[in-house]
């Protein structure tokens, strides 16, 4: 336990001083994006990993958060940073609606309903041009020139998201969520209001995902429906981050975010310019291979199967075996 705390403090200090030492905007940008994915992945994990309600539609909440910030800035003329608060709030409203509709279904049917929900809202955002500017997208002016401010905002957001989820999972809510995942009927027979707690899980999850979306608006300064409501860049990526890192573990999505963003970037940049250009086209295939590998050999993800990795790759015997 002590060793873990020490490790976390070192890791925290490392990320605190990282942008002060590494001045490359490119690497700072990468870590900012990773932090954002830590938030989205952890939120997805709360709903899907712990509560067992697998969502294929987290782009709904990401996009609503981003558009809230963008529309507030362009239509109402208030700083897009207010979107960090209101984006989370409006995402929760979207979450309430999604829950109202989709929680009537269970298991794969719930997943399919959220998948459809994500596509529906993307089409709405594309066609409701008076509000969202449609495919033209929303362009705002970045508040800060340097990446440092964005870096620390994303850092605080990621840390607080993980910490809040950690607190929830230690509380009795956490037990209710897990019991719903394990057996929904048994949980409700034991007196748990399953629809209430499924909605609470969804609301917390949508709030943080919406904050991440609003942060994306502020940071990238440009959004359009194809990006923020994207099925494969947001919804599927959220699932991959969770699965690769480790479903139903606190640190899994954080590790998953590093791996997935790192992999995506390695391919996009053709292995940082070392490999021929055509390889950048292969990143979808690499994702597919990684998922197959993880499902076959590390069904619980990198964090969930960490002891197995240590045993098989590093040949380290577990100390308390």
């Amino acid at each position: 336990m002590k060793k873990n705390h020490l490790f976390m403090i070192i890791l925290g200090i490392f990320f605190l001083i990282f942008p002060l030492v590494i001045h490359s905007h490119y690497y700072q940008h990468l870590v900012i994006i990773i932090f954002m994915w830590v938030v989205i992945g952890s939120s997805w994990n709360l709903l899907a990993g712990y509560t067992g309600q697998v969502s294929f539609g987290h782009a709904i909440f990401f996009g609503v958060g981003a558009y809230t910030a963008g529309i507030f800035a362009t239509k109402l003329g208030i700083s897009a940073w207010w979107g960090m608060v209101f984006g989370g709030f409006f995402s929760m409203l979207a979450g309430l609606f999604v829950g109202w509709v989709c929680f009537r279904l269970r298991g794969p049917y719930f997943a399919l309903a959220t998948l459809a929900g994500g596509e529906i809202i993307r089409l709405i955002a594309t066609n409701w041009e008076s509000l969202t500017e449609g495919m033209v997208g929303i362009l705002i002016i970045q508040t800060f020139k340097s990446k440092l401010s964005y870096y620390y905002i994303a850092f605080v957001l990621a840390i607080s998201c993980i910490y809040v989820i950690h607190l929830i999972m230690k509380s009795k809510w956490g037990y209710y969520f897990v019991s719903i995942r394990e057996d929904e009927d048994a949980a409700s027979s034991l007196g748990i209001n399953t629809s209430l707690y499924k909605n609470i899980s969804l609301l917390v999850s949508s709030f943080f995902t919406g904050m991440a979306g609003a942060f994306y608006m502020n940071y990238m300064a440009f959004i359009d429906p194809e990006v923020v409501f994207s099925l494969h860049y947001v919804s599927i990526m959220a699932i991959l981050v969770g699965i690769v890192g480790g479903v139903a573990t606190i640190w899994g999505p954080a590790v998953g975010a590093f791996v997935m963003v790192g992999l995506q970037e390695t391919f996009r940049s053709s292995f940082f310019g070392l490999a021929p250009k055509w390889i950048s086209q292969a990143h979808a295939m690499a994702f597919g291979l990684l998922v197959i590998f993880v499902i076959m050999f590390l069904a619980n993800g990198i964090v969930g199967d960490w002891s197995k990795i240590k045993r098989n790759i590093f040949r380290i015997k577990p100390s308390n075996a």
């Binding site: 048994a186 027979s189 007196g191």
Partner: peptide, 23 residues
């Protein structure tokens, strides 16, 4: 609703145990 039944003093031990295996 099902979650209120237990408060009345009725409990169901379901078929196939239906435990929470990872608790």
């Amino acid at each position: 609703p099902p979650n209120k039944i237990i408060e009345q003093g009725v409990v169901h031990v379901p078929e196939g145990r239906r435990l929470f295996p990872e608790m």
